[in-house]
Design a protein around this nucleic acid. Structure first.
Lengths: 195, 195
DNA sequence: GATATAACCTAAGGGCTCTAGGAAAGGGGT
DNA sequence: ACCCCTTTCCTAGAGCCCTTAGGTTATATC
């Protein structure tokens, strides 16, 4: 009793973490809510809409986690806290996390109301301020950081790392590497062709 | 006429590039082959099996591309060629690429016959040999490299980079950064807590 | 020529998405 | 007290997809 878009989204998110985002289905969500499939369409436009809402919810949650983790920290400390919060979220909420990363068109009106993605970007730029990079280096650094973190957890989730060496160890080394890289950011792009 | 598992897989791969891996469906593949859905089951166990075969095909193709691109190169040249071949494959064959990255259980017998994944690893280790890293640093470097490349193209595909600065420029800088990072690989892991 | 095998078919069950239209319950105004 | 309206959920049903079972035809084998 008392369905709302939020409740539907939340159940969808839980389901995504349990069985994978691709198995989040209208029927399954309805089943879990003790309701018929058709009833969901009063609160959510369709399956894609639901997935978009899950993505936005996840983006918000992830941003909050990172914000809490980095609060009051700076420099290397902040970087490590940022990265660990990112990875922890991906581990705890795999379905939600992949939702944030799945390319899809989300209702622009919903996006406008969501604060997560915007805040995430500000947060990242602020966190990197300690490294004193100027544009466009700052943007490049933000992108490289996001690429590395996302790539790592994504490969990890896909089972891309053989068991030989614990992923944990590689993670620590990677953060080290990222930190020293940010501190010694190559001053000028070598004008070599990279095409 | 003359369906084979290979032909089904190939059509599936084409379809994946055109409409996205998640829209590769038995019906769609059958339609494109001018055949009834049920006929495919003589050559492919089921939809998951088909997707697994696409993934293996893609892994092979990507490995070949990278091998060709890096042949006869070393050091920075090899790194740039490797990375560009990786990214080019992801751009040209987005559906196949995401297949390589989708976590799924593939028929072990098929995996055993696929040379792509194995070769890819050898290739990467060989390519990084110029940087003269010892284990376990070498493994960490391989993982970091793969993380960064995959993360970048993945974010790029998901529309994660706003249009402000061309992704191309960030890519070039990132390769620079990766190169200098590999040349000055931090000697010893700082024993800081990263948990 | 008889038989086995491979390649493809029709038929059918069951799950999922989504639309259309209906019943029941609560609130507001008169 | 009554009416109406809105909300919330329902049933019914069309359409697509996955998958199995069992039949048909053509080709290869003996």
């Amino acid at each position: 009793m008392g369905l709302t878009a939020e409740r539907v989204t939340l159940v969808g998110a839980e389901l995504a973490d349990e069985v994978g985002l691709e198995h989040v289905t209208m029927s399954a969500v309805a089943r879990r809510l003790g309701v018929k499939d058709a009833s969901l369409y009063a609160h959510v436009r369709n399956l894609d809409d639901l997935r978009g809402r899950i993505a936005l919810l996840a983006a918000d949650e992830k941003t909050v986690r990172i914000a809490e983790a980095t609060a009051g920290r700076a420099g290397r400390d902040a970087l490590v806290a940022y990265a660990n919060a990112w990875r922890a979220y991906a581990h705890e909420c795999p379905g939600r996390y992949t939702a944030t990363q799945t390319p899809m068109e989300i209702d622009p009106e919903l996006v406008a109301r969501a604060t997560g993605p915007r805040r995430a970007i500000e947060l990242t730029y602020r966190m990197l301020r300690a490294y004193e990079l100027d544009e466009p280096d700052l943007t490049d650094a933000v992108r490289l950081l996001r690429s590395t973190l996302h790539g790592f957890v994504s490969l990890e989730a896909a089972g891309g790392f053989a068991h030989a060496r614990p992923a944990e160890a590689t993670w620590a080394r990677s953060l080290d590497a990222l930190h020293t890289l940010l501190e010694n950011w190559p001053a000028h792009p070598t004008e070599g062709d990279s095409t």
